[in-house]
């Protein structure tokens, strides 16, 4: 009974964090669009454009197509948003531990990411539009392809943290925030880590449906596929989810692979430093998102679904397995 109470307390405490996350996700989305535009020598929208978009769509009517399955069509956006938001309760921010650090771990994050993608596909299938069905089918295919390398990355990292005896629970993200995993392993291990990092970088566009993997939403092929029938509040929720997913992936990558913190750099600690660390963490996320989401989506065209699937199953999975083997050798040999 008491544990349930504590859980509720924690979720309540997480509310300000979630509000901050939503705001930051939209701001980063605006920054992403500006940088994308500048790279193409355009002016781009104002920084707050995603916020304006969401506010505008929130005031608009939901239109449900006649052929849609109403229940799933209306609930999918909400469930997607909630699942995506929950991810942030399990990611440590700067020196602060994750809000629900003891209730879930990295596997749950991967699960939540997959869940929100799946719910998006459910919304697409429920639209009753053939183009949305194609988009949803592509989303599922893509998910089946990138989940394997993603799972390898996550499991390997957790196992390494456990074997190296990093402080914190196994499979939790906390150890990676406290100790730099790059310093904890030897030379072979660093090579393995690079392989894993690259695999994660390549999984990101698939996870987000951006860059070379914007196949489920392909604008010039299936006219925004998944979300073709959505309008008004539902569309706003989907837009918010897309922004949050980009942000979540950038945060996840930062927490896992970019553990530099101000406190450890300067060798000091304390509450003020923790606050600065908190801000520094979001700055890191911004940099990671600009490089691995924005640049990535600007520099590539769109692949076809079978090409993307092949790419993940053959190449990225191979890369992640290579990373796993290299890391294992390093950890076992010591």
């Amino acid at each position: 009974m008491i544990s349930v109470f504590i859980l509720f307390l924690k979720i309540f405490a997480g509310m300000p964090l979630l509000a901050l996350v939503v705001l930051l996700a939209l701001l980063f989305e605006g920054a992403d669009r500006i940088v994308n535009a500048k790279m193409q020598r355009r002016y781009g929208p104002p920084l707050l454009q995603p916020v304006y978009d969401i506010l505008k769509l929130m005031g608009k009517e939901n239109i449900v197509p006649r052929r849609a399955s109403r229940f799933f069509f209306m609930t999918a956006p909400w469930l997607t948003l909630v699942t995506t938001l929950m991810i942030f309760l399990y990611i440590p921010t700067g020196s602060f531990p994750p809000v629900l650090g003891t209730e879930g771990d990295m596997v749950l994050i991967v699960y939540l990411l997959a869940m929100s993608g799946l719910l998006m596909a459910v919304g697409g299938f429920a639209s009753g539009n053939p183009l949305a069905s194609i988009g949803a089918g592509r989303e599922i295919t893509l998910m089946m392809s990138y989940e394997f390398p993603l799972a390898i990355v996550v499991c390997t990292m957790a196992w390494v943290a456990h074997r190296l005896g990093l402080p914190g629970e196994p499979f939790s993200l906390e150890p990676f925030a406290a100790v730099s995993v790059w310093k904890a392993v030897g030379k072979t291990g660093v090579m393995g880590l690079i392989c894993l990092f690259l695999s994660l970088v390549l999984v990101v566009p698939g996870e987000l449906g951006k860059g070379p993997m914007d196949i489920p939403e392909a604008k010039t092929e299936i006219l925004d596929g998944l979300i073709i029938e959505y309008s008004g509040v539902n569309l706003a929720l989907f837009k918010l989810t897309f922004a949050l997913r980009s942000f979540a992936m950038a945060t996840f990558m930062t927490a896992l692979f970019v553990p530099v913190s101000l406190g450890s750099l300067l060798g000091v600690s304390g509450f003020i430093v923790a606050i600065f660390d908190f801000i520094f963490f979001w700055a890191k996320v911004l940099v990671v998102q600009m490089i691995f989401v924005t640049l990535m989506r600007t520099m590539f065209g769109r692949l076809k679904i079978w090409q993307a699937s092949q790419f993940y199953i053959m190449k990225v999975a191979g890369l992640s397995i290579a990373g796993m083997i290299l890391l294992s050798i390093d950890v076992i040999a010591r």
Partner: peptide, 11 residues
């Protein structure tokens, strides 16, 4: 280029 989603080359 735009048709294959390669917007940078399009611009």
């Amino acid at each position: 280029c735009y048709t294959i989603g390669f917007d940078s080359a399009f611009h």
